[in-house]
Structures are given as structure tokens and as C-alpha cells.
Design a protein around this nucleic acid. Sequence first.
DNA 1: GCAAGGTC
Length: 988
Amino acid sequence: MNNLIPREYDLLASRKVKSGPLLVWAGMDPSRSASLFTALSPSLATSVFTTLSLSLSLSLSHLRRLFSLFEVSEGPMREGIRVLNVAEKPSVAKAVAGILSQGRLRVREGRSRYNKVYEFEHAIRGQRCHMLFTSVTGHLMEIVFHERYKKWHSCDPADLFSAPIQKHVPQDKLDIKRTLEEEARTCQWLVLWLDCDREGENIAFEVVEVCTTANRNLDIWRAHFSALIDREIRHAVQNLGRPNQLFSDAVDARQEIDLRIGASFTRFQTMLLKNAFVLNISDDDKNVIVSYGPCQFPTLGFVVERYWEIQAHEPEEFWTINCSHKTDEGIATFNWTRGHLFDYSCALIIYEMCVEEPTATVKKVSHQERRKYPPHPLSTLELQKRASQYFRMSSEHTMKVAEDLYQAGFISYPRTETDSFSPNTDLQALVREQQGHPEWGSYAQRLLSPEGLWRNPSSGGHDDKAHPPIHPTKFSAGESSWSPDHHRLYELVVRHFLACVSQPAIGAGTTVEIDIAGEVFVASGLMIIEKNYLEVYRFESWGGSTIPTYAFGQQFIPTRLTLDSSVTRPPPLLSESDLLSCMDKAGIGTDATMHDHIKKLLDRFYAIKDSNTRFSPTTLGEALVMGYDCMGWDLWKPNLRSAMESDMKAVSEGRKTKSEVLASCLQQMKDCFLDVKSHKAKLFETMGIFFERSNTPGGDNLHLAGGKVRSCQQCQESEMVLRRRPDGSFMVGCLRFPLCRNVVWLPGAISEALVTEHVCNVCNPEPVFKIQFKFRRMEIPPNFDTEHLGCIGGCDETLRELIQICGTGPRNLSSGSGTRGRQPTQFSGSAQRRNTSQVVCARCRQSGHSSNDCPQISRSQDAQRPGHGNSNSGGADVLCESCQMPCTVRTANTENNRGRRFYKCDRQECNFFIWEDAIGSGNRGASRVNGNRSSVRGGQAGRGRGRRGARSGAATFVTATGEPVSDRRCFSCGDPSHFANVCPNRGM
DNA sequence: GCAAGGTC
């Protein structure tokens, strides 16, 4: 036994530890200390302590007092273990220490002002322990490249895939590191209370590294807990395990991959592009960073993809039969169970059948109880989405406000994936707290009363095992220091919580099914009986609508039976809420970082957010995505991140090793990088479509040809300027590109072009400046001069002929984007337009579209479509009544006329406009309130084929001019002997 | 000057 004493003596004497009740046992092997302590007699102990006191300059009386205290208070002497506990954040350290000490604890400052040290006594499995509880603030370490590779120009970015890296504690974490080192030296155990996820496990190993460097004898333990509630924490401390190296390895791999590919691609892109093009995205383009990241790029990809989808959308007309019935009790709107038909003829035949036999027979009446359930408990993602939807707050701002509320103790930890409460949570106590609130206090009181409003919250099925759902933790009727957004967010958290523990809303639903000439229509009504959670959750509503009473077999004539047309619409731009959902679905980012990735898109000028919180790509964002897409690499898609995530999972489960995943992933990404690098001309080319070349050093010899040629007649907002593309060809394009895509392509044989001051005296509107061209002799026929003063306004036959002879592209057009054996992803929109705009239409001889897309053909085809039969617009231009110039056909995008085409004179002073469907109907210039093409009652002009009128419930046919039709013929075959509903050719 | 992940 005595042989232990010198060891203890050495340990203690060698360290300048602070005094404390368990001082003398610091550094002792806990498995042996018990027997040592038990065997020590008071006299022997006194002797030991005397020696120690001399070495440690402590008073003997102090040591005696400590020893006596033990002897008296503990009976048979038991050893005390000094345990260093480390949590991932200060709040967790405080909460766990509070639970385990039951409030009997001491607090002292650590080296870091945020990370305090709590001290208390606690028994772990009967073992007396002196607990020191402190924290880190997330990751303690970061990985960086070795000094040699840190400067951007220190190496080829490709070298970053293999450059040596090191993990170190950054400057701002050194205080925390010192605290850990100092406390670890005095302890025998280290218990890791990091969050129970992969990142938490990785942070745990960072703590282990720091602590064991200071004290290699530490016994390392891991506490596993899923919520900061008594039972969980007490169970965790009595069932300590060991940290999971595999979880940590997975994070190590992710960190290294993220760093290497992020740094390499970012350096490459930035150095390649920022000096070569006039990006015009910041006051100083020199500071621009064209970053790449495995999360930010797929996030951008979602934005661009939706944008392209909208651009590529072509409205398609469809037809619906709508029916309504008005009685003294109200109106029932019946929906056609076929939904809608794209075939006008079919729709019209069916409609004629209905009008022919318009009596509706009630086939089914059903009554059901309907319930609208309250939302699941609040996760971070839902908080962000709802704050965006209800208050238009950005996800980033939401998290800042939530963090403030959390720091001040009003709400629980705001970064959580969990959307179900632990059964041990005292939810009623949380509700009780809110009883005094002037707005929702009475609802909280009712929740706790026996009236039955209470309901245990549902589970959303997610649990990050680290934090509870976001909920209020402290009552507030509003603090004076709060901004309006603090008020809003606190209110959302409280109301959401109260809603979660409430009964669902209950309604009485009625469904009525009717039959008109064999066609089925359905109407439904809903009457809210009990609002329940909707009373407190004012952000949601439940559209209550009542319908008249119907009985089975009842018959009636519909008040309104109309054949209505509408057009398909493109999806809207992605809202912030949509974007968060896309990211969540694809596993891009975490609950704590998703808003960062969105913000990064804005910071990097890759996307903009409009006032409706909808995102569209900037020119730079679209160009980058298009550039990579043209090269055939899916770097902007979520696949890469998903694959990485899958590999991380494999590492954490032991199916793959960290080194295995690192080697394969980095090799793959390096191959990709080298390929992109070798095809950088492609990226350059795409950028050249969107941006002017820069003359600043660092760019190459391509340059903007420059000079205004004319004002843009398409957007009417900007100018058409002469440009030279990276492939050497010339074009005249609108400065607003890509917002305006007006372009005039020029012959490929041009070697030089210069805008002159000569104004064309033929083309309008003036001025159209002529361009001095120089052609390459070998590329034009001998009868053409190499010098030519030309006009792009449409009068120049020479240019037109040379375009036909030489084409518009560069001399050696590459084979396009599929040159590496891999076809690029097909996408519509801008890229397709770019390709087609390089050809000349064989029909109208205009450049910028192929004969397939020729607007003249489109107009002719339009004339062939149903509904255009009587139109006088077919095939011929509509001329402005004022200036007699051809009008431009456009599509309306207003709420009442969305999708409806009209002709408009481009000359602003004319102000001439006419609906396409009004041409020939005698309704020139008349606008329509709705899209009805035919109606039983009160319809407006039809599409030329005829419209329906009504007399007291009986259907009548009228012509476009309103005259009754007496000699109706079958619509399908034209035979006057029968109607379409009995046409023998029907269905052929 | 670069990533994404923690957290203050």
C-alpha cells in the first residue's frame, strides 16, 4: 500500500493544482485508490498529508480538515474520483450540471468567458465523484492546408487534392483548449457529453486529443443522452459507454473532402473567371470569389433548374366543364371528375351532350366528419419554413432571432431535427407558464382545464437524439428589447407548441355527386364544428364552405354550365420554403447550416431573392451551372453530396474505412477537376454568352468589340451592341442579356467588325448604326468584297447572303458539349435557345431560330387549331391600325387573362392592341373578365365557333354574334341530321 | 481570398 504514496506524492508535487476537497487524489488510478483510501489509517494519512502539504505549500490544517471531513461524513473511507465532463455547448453543461447536482453546485470562470466550469459532487455507480463540468463551443479544431499551400498562388489548385493537411485548434478556441488542459490535469476521468450525432462524436475526439495530451492517464467515457431532462441525464451518467471512433472517422472524411474539393474548385474558378470577364456584381470585382462548395452548388442548382423549367414552359390550352347550382340556401360549385381535357373537340362534344340533357341527378350524398390535425412539434427546418411563409423572414434572419431568444432563455435550443417530444417532458408545466399571456393565456388555461382540449402531441418521426423540438422555455408577454421579429418568432414558437398539444379541428363534410348526361360532377362543403387548435394557431386556416342540401335522386337544372378554357402555367420560382424543402429532401446541409448555404448564394451573387422571397439565379449563377452542365459534370446537382453522405454512413457503420472513402472520393473528384480544367474553354465559352470580356490583366486576348448598334426593339429597355464571342465570331446582342435574349448573329467569316457613325437610312426605328466588316478572303465567295459597310437592321442583302453561305458560328465549330464521351444533361431553356439562335430559318431567312420554330409557321398552325377557325389572323400578320406595321404576338400574364394571346404594336406611340380571340368576332380590343369560352349564362364572345346562351335553365346555342342557331349540325362530322353526342363517328 | 460542420 505504501508503495502508492510516493506515486501520489510525485503526481501532486509536480502540478500546481488548486486546492479543493479531493485535491490529494488527483491523478490517482481510480481502480486502486479505493483500497488505498480504505487502508489508510488516520495516522498514516496524517503523515502522508504532512508530506504533501510541504510539497504543495498547503496548510496542514486544511488537509486535516479535508481528511476529517471524509472520515466523519463518509464512514468507511471511499475514494473520490475527479471527473472532467465536457459538453458541446455552455447551455448543455449548465443544464446537465444543474440536473445532476440538483442545484447544489459551484460555478467558476474558465479561460473562455463563455465556457464556465461547474463543480459538484455526484456518485456514479456508487463511486463518489467530484464533477467538473465545462464545455466547448462546437468543433474545437479545424483542418487547414500546410503553410506551403495556403496562398492561392502557391500551387496548382489540383495539388490541393493531395496537399498535406493538419488539424489544429484555431486562435479563437485557444482559451477553451487551455481550460480543458488545466482541468484535465487534475482529473482521472473524462466524460464526454457531446451531442449524440456524428459531428458530436468527432468533437468528442477533439476534446479527447486535447485532454489526453495534458493527461495521458485519463479514463475516457461517453455519455449518451437524447434530451436534457432528469431521467435521460441520470440514466446517461450511470450508463457511460465509450466514444465511437467510426462515427468520428466519417466526419474526418467529410471534412477533408469538403476542404479539398471546395478549395481547389474555388481557387480554379475564381482565378480563371474573375479577371477575364466584366462581372459587374460588386463595386470591386477584384474581391469577388467565385466559390464552389458541395452544398452551395446543389443549392444553386435547385434555383437554376426551376428557373429553366419556367423559361422552357410553353402554355398549353385545356378545357374544363364547370357547373354550379344556386338555391336559396347558397351555391354549390361542382367539379368535373374528368378534371380537364386538352382536346377541345372532345371537351366540346361532352359539353354539348351535357347542354343537350342538362338535368342533373343527384347520385350520391355523403356526410363525413373531417379533421384537420395540428402540426408536429417544431423542428428547425419547420421553424424556418413557417417563419418564411408567415412573416417572410429569411431563414438566416430567423436563426439569428431564434438564437437571441434561446440565449435569453425564452425558447429551447433552436437547432434541432427532432419533431417529437420525449414522453418524459412535462408539457403541462410548459403550458402552465403561458397562462398569463394576454393573447393566448386563456387558451392555455383551457388546455389545462378538464374540457378535453388537451391532446398528447403527435410525432413527426424525426429525432436527432440531442435536442427536443423547439418550444417555449420561459414566459414573456414581450420584452422591451425585442424587435418585431423577436415578438413574431416567440409568438410562433408558443402558438405552435400550444397547437401541438391541442385537439384537431373538427368539421362536418358533405360530398354531393351528380350526373349530367353521363358525366359526373362533385361538390363538397365543409362546416367547421370545433376549431380547437385553430383557435390558437392563427397562422393556419381551414376554408369552411357550405353547400345547399341535396337528396339522393333529386334532379335540378344547373344555374351555370360552362365550357371554360385555361392554360397550363409554369411553376413559380422557388420560395425560401421550397428551397429548404429541396435541400432537406436531397440531404444538402444540416438543420444548422441550410440557411447558411442559402445566404451564401446571395453573398456570392449567384442568386437573388425577390420581395416574395422567391429565388432566381443571377447571370453569374446561371452561367456557372450552364458551364458545368455543358461540360457534362453534375457538380450542381445533389448527387455528389448524396453519394458522399452514403459513404459517410458506410464509414460510420464500419462497412468502409475512412481511408478507403477518402482515396476513392478524392481520386474521382480530382479526375473531375482535371477534366474541367482541360475543358475550361467550355466554361469560358458559356461565360462569354453572359458576360463581356474584360481588358484587365489576367484576361486573354478576346475582347468586347463594343459600340451601340441600335436600341433593342424586343425589350425596349436597352441597347444592342456589337460583341465578339470567345470562339471569335461576332454578334449583336442586347445588353440586358439574359433578361432579354434579342440577338442578331453575324456571318462566321468576319475577321474584324467596327461600329461606325453611319446611320442606315432604310431601317427603322432610327438610328441603326452601320458596321464596318472585314471578311476572311478564303471564306467568302470571290464575288464578295472583303470590306463591307453593313447594316444589321434587315436591309442588308450582302450580310443575309453571307450568313447563308458561311453560317454564323466560328470556322471550326466543335462537336458541342458531348465531346468527352458523356452526353451533357439535357436541359431546356437558355442553352437550347443559344444553339438554335445560331441557325438561320429556312422559311423566313431570319437568324435566331430554325424553320421548325419559325413564328410565321406557329401563327399558321395557330390558325388551324380549334377555336381559330373563324379568325382572320391565320397565317397573316396583324397590322397596327395606326401605323400599319406588323404587330407582335404576346401572351397575357395577368390574373384574369393569363395565357391569352394578343397582338400589340411595338411602337409605343401607337398603343394599338387586340386580343387574338377577338379578331373576327367583332369584339376588337374588348377584354374579357374571365377565361370562359362558352357559357350557359352570361357568356362573352366565344372563339368563333359559337357560344352558348340560356333561357331559364334551358340551354340554347347562339353564334359568335349572338344570333340563335336553328340549323345546328354535328360538330364532329358536320352532318345536320344529328348532334355530336349521337354522332356515329364519335370515338373514331 | 477557398468548404461544411459545430456554436457564441
